[in-house]
Design a binder for these strands. Sequence first.
DNA 1: AATGCGGGGTT
DNA 2: AACCCAGCATT
Length: 374
Amino acid sequence: MTSWAAILKKVLGNYSKACFNRNSDSLLLTAEVFQHSLLDWYDCHGRKDLPWQSKPANAYAIWVSEIMLQQTQVSVVIPYFQRFMTRFPTVQALASASLDRVLEHWAGLGYYARARNLHKTAQIINTDYAGQFPAQLDVLCRLPGIGRSTAAAILSMAFSQRHAILDGNVKRVLARFYGIQGWPGKASVSKQLWQLSDDLTPPNRVADYTQAIMDLGATLCTRRNPECTACPVASACVARITKRIEELPTPRKQQAIPVKHCYMAVLLNSKSDVYLQKRAASGIWGGLWSLPEHADKNSVIEWFQQRLVDKTSLKWLPVRKHTFSHFHLHFQPVLAQSGQPHTISEFAQSGWFKPDQSQPAMPAPIQKLLSDIL
DNA sequence: AATGCGGGGTT
DNA sequence: AACCCAGCATT
């Protein structure tokens, strides 16, 4: 008897009873009320001038923005988006650029597989689809870096196709509105939320609706201290009615994250260029340029000795800490100046770089280290 | 079904 | 220090 529909009927005084009388299907009815309330709110308070919003819609810009916005906040994305679109204004420009150039424009955003997938997908669209976005959900979903939610977002916002999305904002809004318990990463919970998102997605104004429900989650229905007093659907929100706003959506069970230790070799030549290696394509900082990494002290010392740097001239700098989503990294930079030009060939690509330039693409903590010490 | 993958922001 | 954020790919 605490079903959502029962609660809704009790509290839904301010939305017209005519709606209830007109249709006996409470779910369908609810969807219509929800859509109308949300779209009215969007017309007054939604965001309509983000850099990737244009009339007519630019599918390329929407795609790039959607990838950048994965696990990344709007305010962080905007300057990256501007620079990226200036340098790669079209899918053709992106497809014909080198991966290194793309990564340079991504450095600092994190989740670098997104940039590699973006580049790969640009080439696929350019060659297999004549530069035009495939406008079918299942086709889009097969492209690297595009999952169900991102595909639905592109198709709804760029092509006005009716598809439901389920990003972090929508998960939070729906988990609260329907009082759905359980971590949304769990398959059964995710399945429920996808069903509800699809139930609510309207056949008309779907582009506005998609933006509206994300705006609601991003600006009012925030993780902490949501502004329920300004929310267009607050009167029917189960979490609000049952005072469970702070508990929903259920957070994932957090486990202690490990600390990993390593050394980073900072080798300078006579011109004070720094020696960098290109990292493997997969794993942490995949494809980026970074300092030679060593697991233990002996390994660093040996590495420097091979380059004619004596053990006694090494400068052991203070340990620096960086936190990833799944582990802490404590790394100690080891600084030395080499009298000789370095000629030993490596498995990885390597070279000397001016530390004060934006090239090549470096991880943020390495960039920070070099700017601090050089 | 669970894990790997960054970095910036907030509290 | 803990937690969050316009997810997806891999295993």
